[in-house]
Write a protein that binds this DNA or RNA. Structure first.
Length: 153
DNA sequence: GCCAACGTTGGC
DNA sequence: GCCAACGTTGGC
């Protein structure tokens, strides 16, 4: 089992969208960075995922997700009307990957980036490092536990 | 709105 | 294959 964190802006597949979806899953598509894609491809149904809000008033971890469907070709890469359309990707060998995610729970409080930055377990991590643009990233078990501990306060 | 940190593109 | 220019991400 592995631990992950996925980043989004609140208005673009963030917590409001998961609340609207209820128990249903959302397609996590549009990842167009190879390193992030490789992490997506490594996801399995057993894995645990954190949801992170970026570029907003309350930056930080907002809830817990689970993998509802294992990695499959991101449909948006073949959709000419999608902003994520990639004319260089072919059906026979899709370039980009999606997963489906469902909300497990929303945290009562946002666990802020500024809080994470103070925690030794996050020192040097891609999440707290200045300028890191990775939108899907692995977490260590210790990092996961630390977030879980804060999320129940 | 600013700017630092990246990743990507394209000329050579 | 190098690297400058450019576009994007994302914190502040």
């Amino acid at each position: 089992m592995a631990y992950w964190l996925v980043k989004t802006e609140p208005a673009d597949g963030g917590l409001p969208a998961f609340h609207a979806a209820g128990a249903a899953s959302l397609v996590w598509d549009g990842v167009r960075n190879y390193q992030a894609r490789n992490f997506l491809r490594a996801m399995s149904l057993m894995d645990k995922v954190l949801l992170y809000h970026a570029s907003c008033a309350e930056i930080g971890v907002v809830g817990q997700l689970k993998v509802a469907r294992e990695p499959y070709p991101d449909p948006s890469q073949f959709d000419p009307n999608s902003p994520y359309f990639d004319s260089g990707s072919h059906q026979t060998q899709p370039r980009w990957t999606a997963v489906d995610l469902t909300l497990v729970r929303a945290f009562p409080e946002v666990i802020r980036l500024s809080t994470l930055k103070m925690m030794p377990v996050f020192t040097g991590s891609a999440l707290t490092r200045k300028g890191s643009r990775l939108s899907v990233l692995p977490m260590t078990e210790d990092q996961w536990r630390a977030v879980m501990a804060l999320s129940t306060i």
